[in-house]
Nucleic acid binder design. Structure first.
Lengths: 216, 216, 216, 216
DNA sequence: CATGAATGAGGTTTCATTCAT
DNA sequence: GATGAATGAAACCTCATTCAT
């Protein structure tokens, strides 16, 4: 039979790993614990996958114990959701940056694609979660949440592609998927392979699809 | 993160060895228990992923108990290896079927690509394992085994691509990867979407890359 | 079973000490935080049981956080003690109210029983804790505290029963237990069942026992 | 990142606690593991309560590890259900034993009550679970199961009470509850108190209720 | 007084694996 | 070949408790 009285007075020691980054006057916002956890989880998920990542792994990376994470997140799944959300946010931010709304559709697409390729590499940790964890999750409720995140992102490209002067026979959904697939795949396979920057690869890929399908 | 150090370098038992099913005079090969397990595992892996698949899941699908599997396989990992091997074998068989060695490189590529797209859909269970499980496995010993399977498959395309009359500036490795990526991606996303058959999509994709990079 | 050995004999702090609420001139006693907690805990304990109640549950009901409770109570167990004490106090207050010390023993018993039945229903939250939590606690130190509370209450009935003119063969302890058991049980089972008020049921039950055992 | 290969060849040692009771020719059926677990759980639940009982407690009592229990039961709650079912079965068996269907209703009630009081004491471990765990469980699905067990038992008494020649004003449901409450309570409180056997107490209680309410 | 954050023990459960039968 | 039973490590999660602010 158990008693629940706590036994020993445990001093709340911050066990060595002082996450000291109280930015000070430099202006860099001190990352909250929640953000620390999301960052650590993204890294774990991208390296080992969601299933193979233990709460302890995430905790260790943030200098806490597994149980402590539950103060910030209700479950492991909620962390996945948060990571996925953050990933989409980062990708979107980067993709949309510096796009001139008054530019031609093709120029906007080129810019967005280059941005996308760049962020896929720059934020590979987060990007891989979106690319590789999402398709596997079968739980309906979870899936609905992830899809809702993803829709925000896809809309950016859908809007641009809808504006493109493509030949009438082109299935724009498939066309968009083909482009995004190629770009996304580069995250998984691209390992500083070859001399091209992500942006250059992106331009290349858009070009490929453009010549074929542009309306005359 | 759980350390992945393989304790014993297990040589990929049976790797490359074709499990000769003694079909007998009837002609119809009675599937051995081993093959049943591989089939069941492929399905589980493709639906839930390797990590989320329990031995019990595989066992249930074959009508046995979890413990019984160990008569046929030494470990769960060996099942993954066997599934991966079988997947590559099936893909290869289909990809190479009906290719005329004396045809032009472009024709051979078209044929191989169409075959590839088809088998990715026809054998989705196995194909998904190759496409989605392989990149995640970080364990060196295991990875080496999977890579060795995959090399056999990639050689088919490498050989053809090497024969293609491409412009001198083209990185053939990247070119090949771009093609295979697009095709592979279709497994994950293709859900009888649009009216095109897998083969038609493949022809389309090859065409795209061809016009751009063919030597004059 | 979790061993229940109390590490430190904690004297039941405040046991018996009436927490004088300084009502001030307004006359309406503002319920102190301590009383809020006791009230909330009683409700939780009665609904889910002591073991299944988390500090957080109690805290939420009072609009604080779990940690804040520890300013008012040293441990969860101390809350149980306080709830139990308060429960017995409320029951006693009600049971003794309006009993004429100069009335006949039977009349006093009837009055006390009716009062008891009433308070069991009126203060069900507290009553259930006494009725259902007490018998389960095996820890000796804790049990001693709870028993000491309870003795005060039992004395009321013991005194009355001792005055009753019962036949000499009657075991007065058993007789009292039978009566109290029936009454207490009604808390657990009584759900506005039937048309009788708690007081009517009490009268009925006393009557049953009376006819049988009254000395001639 | 985890690997799941098991490290050490663990000999399946039965760790000292050999539950050797292979009855042999004596004819005593060797209790199955499932029955062992139910027995052990009943004891734990009756002593500490369901919530305060850890799977490890039950396991230790049967000489296994906590995880091993899950081969026999899917969850802790299923154990509670099984214990409750077994408890009701034992009680019913004892209550119904030796009742002459052709006897008068009052005789049948006397017999059943005496049997009931006896089994409550003889099988206190199981009886306490029914008496004290049942009323607390709020989960609807679980509650429905427990109620269904209990109904079988209550029917025995309901049938007898329905046959009794009681005064027309008597609420038979309440009457039955009063009797059963008194009897059940004796399990919790009865500690070889006084010189009466359980059966004698039961007869006494029935008698009390009888004189009052019997139709003339 | 209260909060926010953390601790660490321990809870239930899962699961790859073993092995006698 | 297969089963039944068990193991034990490790997973996710809960919770009483502490303490600086």
């Amino acid at each position: 039979m158990r008693t629940d009285a706590r036994r020993t007075a445990r001093p709340a020691r911050n066990a060595g790993v002082t996450q000291a980054d109280d930015a000070g006057p430099s202006g860099v916002a001190p990352r909250s614990r929640r953000e620390d956890i999301i960052e650590a989880a993204a890294e774990c998920f991208s390296v080992a996958g969601y299933d193979a990542t233990a709460m302890r792994d995430i905790a260790r990376k943030t200098g806490m114990l597994a149980g402590s994470i539950y103060y910030h997140f209700a479950s492991k799944e909620e962390i996945l959701i948060a990571v996925h959300e953050e990933a989409v946010r980062r990708i979107m931010n980067h993709v949309c940056a510096g796009i001139d709304p008054s530019a031609s559709p093709w120029d906007r697409l080129l810019q967005a694609s280059a941005n996308y390729a760049e962020v896929l590499v720059a934020e590979r940790k987060f990007a891989e979660v979106v690319v590789t964890e999402f398709p596997r999750r079968r739980d309906d409720a979870l899936r609905a949440v992830l899809v809702s995140h993803r829709n925000a992102f896809e809309k950016v490209f859908r809007d641009i592609v809808d504006d493109l002067p493509l030949a009438p026979w082109v299935d724009r959904t498939l066309w968009r998927l083909a482009l995004l697939s190629q770009l996304a795949w580069s995250v998984v396979w691209y390992r500083s392979k070859g001399g091209k920057t992500p942006a250059e690869i992106a331009v290349h890929m858009v070009d490929l699809l453009r010549r074929q399908t542009e309306a005359e």
